[in-house]
């Protein structure tokens, strides 16, 4: 089949992409070690992960030389995923003030009962409104 001779000529390219992915993994671990200020740590981490995913998808999964039908499917899927992400997250972001803050009280109670607290101190039990 015709597109398989492309696979051979890309061997060199695959090695380069492999190396790039290694480097990016080291980068992402390094960045998270540095504890950036809240929004930036998240944004940089996600950017690196998206870049790595993009490299794997474009080169390893031959998406760069794919037929338009596959792009249509992936476009529809991407739209569905964006809807699946956007609406629940936006909803819970809005609902936050309505939550009854039992969480830490119960968790702490349960934690102490299950075993001695191992890791960092829990947030102090906020008083119930």
């Amino acid at each position: 089949m015709s597109d398989h001779d492309d696979a051979q000529s890309h061997v060199k390219l695959y090695w380069m992409i492999g190396a790039a992915l290694f480097a990016l993994t080291i980068a992402t671990v390094g960045v998270s070690k540095v504890h950036l200020v809240h929004p930036w740590g998240l944004i940089v981490g996600l950017a690196i992960a998206t870049l790595k995913a993009g490299l794997v998808a474009a080169i390893f999964m031959h998406l760069k030389w794919e037929s338009r039908f596959i792009y249509y499917f992936l476009g529809v899927t991407l739209a569905a995923v964006i809807i699946l992400f956007a609406i629940p997250i936006w909803d819970f972001e809005y609902l936050r003030p309505l939550f009854v803050e039992h969480a830490d009280v119960a968790a702490q109670g349960h934690e102490a009962a299950a075993h001695p607290p191992v890791h960092g101190a829990e947030a102090p039990a906020s008083s119930h409104p």
Binding site: F92, L95, V100
Partner: peptide, 21 residues
Amino acid sequence: PAGLVIGGQTTPWTGGGQSLL
């Protein structure tokens, strides 16, 4: 969610979840 009291007793679930999810 946290603090569930079912039939008068606390439950084995530690809470923190969202039923709306």
